[in-house]
Design a protein around this nucleic acid. Structure first.
Lengths: 217, 217
DNA sequence: GATGAGATAGACAGGTCTGTCTATTATGTG
DNA sequence: CACATAATAGACAGACCTGTCTATCTCATC
């Protein structure tokens, strides 16, 4: 995540391309301070790029925001799935591993909630492109959790995933607002309850109401 | 609960005082379009007030935002408690009545999520005053739900309320993002699970871990 | 060496934002 | 009636915002 930013005695000493520096700087500032509160000038200054270089790569600020969300979606999902799979390697665990994965995230010092929830709240009448990325992110997460529920032999994995999404979003928002990590205990408790009553008797891999599409991530 | 504000000198045409028109207009715009996206000029124009009248009543925009949140806190809590108490009049109901109360809110055509969550997301480095109102609102809601859990003879009402808060916030955010009211089913399902395992055997009104302060609302 | 692509600094336009200020008009009370 | 209070319209300052433009510089490749 940290973009290498050194002074630039010679221009070629910067290891990353101008476009990459812009995206990395913008991602940091957008997440930390908000999309609306972060101006183009600040991004340009901190990424040590000329204004024309910026507008050569991004026709408008909104295009940069879209790329920020798109990249965030990819990296966050990759991280989440990897962390969840690692937790799932332990025997006897259930859906509540999600709470432990989230805890890792919440403990990061610069955690400031979900970039997609925040962007949604910041831009009520956002561009349709942004709303699309936001919706797709949440849909992808829900799909993965449904797959998880299915692998854990829970009944009605789609429905269970929908319920789990409520718990996940709620946990994110509450940690962001209160900074209280005991929210993870509530999260774990709720997810365990979800898993408890929804366990199938068989442990085979037949699919009762499997979602039609499982991205790999 | 609000301090008596009765200095309306009964203007000829406009029934409300300038200050009141400002607050009402700002509340509508702040909630609908966001605090940051709503400029002073728009508030002034739509409330049919002069700019100097605005700054006579509010030293800065932030003061108006604070009053917006304060009023929203009071009116929302009043509405929520009244609706919950009405639901609770039915026999045999539990914590899941909250889902029905929330559904009423979600069905309002101009629902756009929780004003406090949105404002928090919009202003990462907000004034301490705003953060205070936001935290107090959520704390008041949690306290009321703990009282509810206690009245419903649930064990550990404080802990149950903490769990319920996760469900509530998650439901709000998900409806705001997806517009899908079946979230209320997830909400109800989760709250019923919370109430089911947490019921005390006795139905008396002894208090195991009662919160120290119960506001009346 | 010449060339062309891409980067750079920085001025600039046009808009919006918060907040101040002046000058005028209504209104209620002594 | 006189006067204080409060509201009005609207200009204005200064900051910040997005986006455009010019003019220069670097560098890889021909």
């Amino acid at each position: 995540m940290p973009a290498s930013k050194k002074k630039a005695p010679a221009k070629k000493s910067l290891p990353l391309s101008a476009r990459e520096r812009i995206v990395l700087t913008a991602s940091r500032l957008f997440y930390q301070d908000g999309v609306r509160a972060t101006g183009i000038d600040k991004i340009i200054a901190e990424s040590e790029v000329a204004k024309m270089s910026f507008y050569r790569h991004f026709p408008s600020k909104n295009d940069l925001v879209a790329e920020y969300l798109q990249r965030r979606h990819e990296s966050w999902m990759k991280w989440f799935v990897a962390a969840a799979e690692q937790q799932l390697a332990q025997p006897g665990v259930g859906l509540e591993v999600i709470a432990e994965v989230l805890r890792e995230w919440f403990e990061e010092p610069d955690f400031r909630g979900c970039a997609f929830i925040n962007t949604q709240a910041e831009t009520p009448a956002a561009e349709e492109r942004l709303n699309g990325v936001i919706r797709e992110h949440k849909a992808a997460l829900q799909t993965y959790i449904a797959e998880l529920a299915h692998r854990l032999a829970l009944e009605a994995p789609l429905q269970t995933a929908a319920h789990a999404m409520v718990v996940i979003e709620g946990s994110i928002v509450r940690v962001q607002m209160t900074g209280d990590l005991t929210v993870c205990d509530s999260c774990s408790h709720l997810l365990r309850k979800l898993g408890r009553t929804a366990r199938r008797s068989d442990t085979a891999s037949t699919d009762p109401d499997l979602p039609p599409y499982f991205p790999g991530f």
